[in-house]
């Protein structure tokens, strides 16, 4: 595969919920090793766009090309596509009936068919990476929100995906716990992980993003380098939105 090949390419993506037209002719390219931050008002379709990328939502039209492969949900095995795309959710979605390490090794054992020992070794590595190795044997309910989200990140990373999607990973957290999660994400970005991040953390966007994409009502209004978008957005709608959140 050539180095130039984008991680994700979206071509005139359309998505409806019943009559509601949620994504309108979205074109977007995410390059390898790039960190793209998706911003926009609530209800503008950010989550839906993210969820279309790993086929948790099915598109109604257009193309989604993952690492050069034009994915056809009817023909292609989506389970193998999803293994290459990690996802982190606003509400963590940890498995409450499994311990922390149990959460992390679940898919290693049952999707990647590793034996338990091997899975635990890898799982512990990733728990260490998010600073939670000592919590391996407890159940998620005993963790703080920030810890839960770091476990969720470790769980996704343990599958060694080529790219990561984050849907408002810090929106469900108490303010004092946001930092520890952003820290993990920053390190991940430094290591060159390809990331698409929906967030309202503009500080994070400014510092970490290679590119900021502003969406409104199912349309990409504008995109560019963070300083360009934050200092001199071309579109009035973008300026308005930013003046409200900054």
């Amino acid at each position: 595969m050539s180095k130039q090949q984008p991680a994700i390419e979206v071509k005139s993506l359309n998505k409806y919920f019943g009559k509601l037209h949620v994504l309108k002719d979205i074109d977007m390219t995410i390059n390898e090793n790039e960190v793209v931050v998706l911003i926009g008002a609530s209800g503008s379709g950010k989550s839906t766009l993210l969820r279309c990328l790993n086929f948790l939502e099915m598109k109604n039209g257009g193309e989604i090309i993952i690492e050069g492969e034009n994915i056809d949900p009817k023909k292609d095995n989506l389970n193998t596509v999803r293994q290459r795309i990690g996802m982190v959710f606003q509400h963590f979605n940890l498995f409450p009936h499994k311990t922390v390490i149990g959460n992390v090794i679940e898919a290693l054992i049952h999707v990647k068919k590793m034996n338990k020992e091997e899975a635990v070794t890898i799982g512990m590595e990733y728990l260490e990476k998010v600073g939670l190795a000592e919590k391996a044997k407890v159940y998620p309910r005993t963790l703080s929100g920030g810890q839960k989200q770091r476990v969720a990140i470790a769980r996704a990373l343990a599958m060694e995906p080529d790219m990561m999607l984050f849907d408002e990973p810090t929106s469900g957290l108490d303010p004092e716990l946001v930092g520890e999660v952003l820290e993990v994400m920053k390190n991940l970005a430094k290591e060159g992980m390809t990331m698409v991040v929906v967030t309202h953390e503009m500080g994070f966007a400014r510092e970490v993003a290679d590119r900021v994409v502003y969406m409104d009502q199912g349309v990409i209004i504008e995109e560019g380098a963070p300083d360009v978008i934050f200092e001199q957005a071309a579109e009035e709608r973008t300026q308005e939105f930013l003046s409200r959140v900054l």
């Binding site: 999803r82 795309i85 979605n93 940890l94 999707v111 969720a152």
Partner: peptide
């Protein structure tokens, strides 16, 4: 959704 996103059937 979390399970599916990890590649589980």
């Amino acid at each position: 959704e979390a399970a599916r996103s990890l590649g589980m059937t």
